[in-house]
Computed example of a mutant assay.
Amino acid sequence: MRPRAVLIGAPGSGKSTVGRLLAERLGVGFRDTDADVETVAGKAVSDIFIEDGEARFRELEAGAVRRALAEHDGVLSLGGGAILSEETQRLLAGHTVVYLEVGLTQAVSRVGLASARPLLVLNPRSQLKKLMDARRPIYEALAVLTVKTDERDAEQVADEIMKGLGA
């Protein structure tokens, strides 16, 4: 069992929105590893960061990704930083990984500057830029398909992914 598509990308790239739409079009289930982490921890991702720290969150996230890659055969959305784990990078080899590429301006507009996202608390625009710059090479290396999301709605992005999947 393996996912039809694994969506990766920065916060604000549209992984959850596009993922749900793509899953619907493909007639498969949708799964988000951030939601899996929240279920296991019994609290929101932001609370895990505050109460338990980023290291604990990353540990929970790596487990969620490992389980989802083994159990889920639909569309899977990974948290933006899940790809930082070397284990996750290895596990993604051979999967249909779709990188949703978003520019800083669009990401800021979609995420919002008053975001509850834990890594963007202080100076969100600057933090988001650093995070995107650091992760971009990993996203690009893992992707078998890259789809630009700037100035496009979820329908257009899903259309392009469908074409790329040959569906």
Rank of each mutant, 00 (worst) to 15 (best):
A35D: 12
L113D: 12
V45N: 03
L100K: 12
S46D: 05
L100S: 09
A44Y: 06
M162L: 10
A5Q: 01
G80L: 11
G74E: 04
R31E: 06
S77F: 10
E54A: 06
A134S: 08
S109T: 02
G29T: 07
V75D: 00
L165C: 10
R56A: 11
R56P: 01
G53W: 05
A154C: 13
G80Q: 05
R136L: 04
V98K: 10
A55K: 02
L145C: 12
E54W: 11
A93L: 15
V157E: 13
Y139C: 14
I138F: 15
S46H: 06
R66F: 11
V6Y: 03
T96Y: 08
D159K: 08
G14W: 07
R117K: 09
T105D: 15
D153E: 09
D36K: 02
A41T: 03
E160Q: 13
E151S: 15
M132A: 14
T39V: 02
E86A: 15
T88E: 04
D73Q: 10
D52M: 08
E155R: 15
L128D: 09
G94H: 07
R152Q: 13
I50E: 13
G94F: 12
K15V: 07
T105F: 02
G81R: 02
V111M: 04
V28Y: 03
E54Q: 11
L113K: 00
A55L: 10
L22R: 02
R152I: 08
L84E: 15
L78G: 08
Q156K: 10
L22C: 09
Q89F: 04
A70L: 09
I138M: 13
E151M: 10
G103C: 09
E160N: 02
L69A: 01
E160G: 03
P118I: 05
L165V: 03
V157R: 05
E59F: 00
L120I: 04
V147K: 11
L142E: 00
A44M: 10
L100F: 11
L60S: 08
H95Q: 07
L26H: 01
V37D: 03
R136S: 12
G19Y: 07
A35N: 00
R117M: 03
E54S: 07
F57W: 04
K15T: 10
E160R: 01
Y99F: 15
K43H: 02
R25T: 08
